[in-house]
Amino acid sequence: MSDLLIPTRRQLIAGAAGLAAAAALPLRPARAAVPTINIGYFIETKPTMIAKAQGWFEDEAKAKINWIEVASGAQINAGVVGGSIDIGIGIGSSPTAAGLSQGIPYKLIAMLDNIGAAEEMTVRASDNIKSPADFKGKKLATPFGSTSHFRLLGFLKTNGLSLSDVTVLDLPPEQIVAAWARKDIDGAYVWSPAKAKLLADGGEVYKTYDVLDEKGYVIADLIIARDGFAQPHPEAVVGLLKAYGRALDLYTSNPTEASAVVGTAAGVSAQVAEDNLKEYDFVPLKEQLTAKWLGTPGKPGAFAEQLQHTAEFLVEQKSIRKSRDLAVYQKGIDTQYLERAVA
């Protein structure tokens, strides 16, 4: 028994050589073959769905893609930390700001859209809510941890309202619609299609986004790439962004055709898809490379400041432990892939 278990010197040397060879192996072929890309994404009415439905992401990245549907940006963050998500498409600016503050090993590589009016406060028209003071004693719902939640808390803070003046409930979009129909809530901060359903069912828009955008509560949907994936496979990352660029071009040039494809992919009618798509400001890839948004490599744009401001707010909310210097958010934006994708 024992002589079987104790290796001879020759076996030991052979084993060590084998181990060394195995350790050296991944160094060479890393660039050659791109492994299956794990992409975390939302089912939503965005041009990304065109590229997904048409297989453009696979074509341009020259790789197989494993699509992982997520329900929140938090899941993308957790997936990247655990190494099971390589690319996150559609993650909101607040989970991204949280992730960069916490040192999650990923970079913001491009934007999808500036959310603007697409996420907005909807209140019950019969409640006659016209000024911030009218919100006292009201029940509002929003998906916690989302960009809408961030905006809603920003609205309360900038108007001197506290969580004891207003009840804020954590509900996912579909449950917001149900709670609204039962008249359990007086208002909600959410996106379409939930927002559209509230508006159709006795709701009215209470405009907050213009003032909030000016005060530094800009929210956006973004694309992130895990460092451990993007660094060895830059071509694939550029390819993914090219695929999104193609989809965005199709939407700009032919919104009707694009809406039909998006509708099918997201499981809504072409009309609903078209209405939802219209609410977002999809920033053209070239424009993202200007100082107003992401900037260029070495010359980070103003969006880094938005991320920092978002992070500072999240610290106040006890959502994250600490925010970082502006440089951390500037380094968290990596526009080299985008620059090559539009070249």
Partner: peptide, 20 residues
């Protein structure tokens, strides 16, 4: 529709990976 309770606290903190 949480905003209270220990169970909700754990869920909400987990959303931002507040492991502490």
């Amino acid at each position: 529709a949480g905003s209270s309770g220990i169970g909700w606290l754990i869920l909400d903190a987990g959303r931002f990976l507040r492991s502490d």
